[in-house]
């Protein structure tokens, strides 16, 4: 089945090489990934531009979550998993022997589908949990990080008077922003988001989308989403995946207005299957 789907051809890959004005933050080169004997990614090649939002869309099981987990070496945490090919972060292979997986995950943070604040920790402790794990002990700098990151995600005014409250007591949308604050507290360079709004109502979703759009000034963002309208709203670039292959990757406006691949056209117009 995998062989019947054409991925990006050489000409399209060349066309999508970053222009001089657009720096590449991460470059996926010939990436294959497996869960035991099942191949989940097939020869994926993708340039993630600096300070842009890149969305990955595709039907369930197409490999988009696997791909995003390969970008910070979380895929290898699954027993029996395997990766070949390379993922370059600022030109250095994150799977190379000279880069530590923990350091990679510090530089490439992740926010998950379901808000997952540490339930037994306060709001403040949730924000600084990563810093404490990294050995930071200075109280005043912790306070500074708490305030700065909670302000960054638009949560400070809502929680500043009750920072000792449990993170789990917040609403779903607030919890997700808290998780984003926790990811930002350790100052990553890239933020990966795996369906960050799928458990949220439209109001909370709108706040997260506004936040993502503002975050790209400082960070490079890669988001997996089932919601094509969300990709169209917030992403600068969109990649469409199917059966483990990258079928099409282009500027979001082009991909949604005039896709080059018939498969993309059929998927985004709902004529699939």
């Amino acid at each position: 089945m995998l062989e019947s789907v054409t991925s990006l051809d050489v000409e399209e890959r060349q066309r999508l090489e970053p222009h001089d004005a657009l720096e590449t933050k991460m470059e996926v080169v010939g990436l294959d990934a497996w869960y035991s004997t099942k191949q989940a990614l097939v020869d994926v090649n993708l340039n993630v531009r600096s300070n842009k939002v890149t969305a990955i869309i595709g039907p369930s099981g197409c490999g988009k979550s696997t791909l995003i987990r390969c970008l910070n070496r979380m895929h290898e945490l699954v027993p029996g998993s395997r990766v070949t090919g390379s993922v370059l972060l600022d030109g250095k292979n994150i799977y190379g022997s000279d880069l530590d997986a923990v350091d990679v995950r510090r530089r490439v943070g992740m926010v998950f589908q379901k808000p997952n604040p540490f339930p037994n920790m306060s709001i403040a402790d949730n924000v600084t949990a990563g810093l404490k794990l990294a050995g930071v002990k200075d109280e005043s700098s912790m306070k500074e990080v708490e305030r700065r990151t909670l302000e960054r995600v638009g949560l400070w005014d809502e929680v500043k008077d009750d920072l000792k409250r449990s993170g789990a007591s917040l609403s779903g949308g607030q919890q997700q922003r808290l998780c984003i604050a926790r990811a930002l507290a350790i100052e990553p360079e890239v933020l990966l988001m795996d369906e960050p709004c799928s458990a949220l109502d439209p109001t909370a979703t709108a706040k997260i989308e506004q936040l993502i759009t503002s975050l790209k000034q400082t960070y490079t963002v890669v988001i997996v989403t089932h919601n094509m309208q969300q990709a169209a709203r917030i992403a600068d670039y969109t990649a469409f995946m199917y059966l483990g292959k990258l079928i099409e990757y282009d500027e979001t406006t082009t991909l949604f207005e005039n896709p080059r691949q018939e498969l993309t056209e059929r998927y985004i117009t709902g004529k699939f299957g």
Binding site: M228, Q229, A232, F256, E257, N258, P259, E265, I268, T269
Partner: peptide
């Protein structure tokens, strides 16, 4: 329906 691609065109 937020049409895209050929529908939008």
């Amino acid at each position: 329906y937020q049409p895209v691609a050929s529908d939008l065109r």
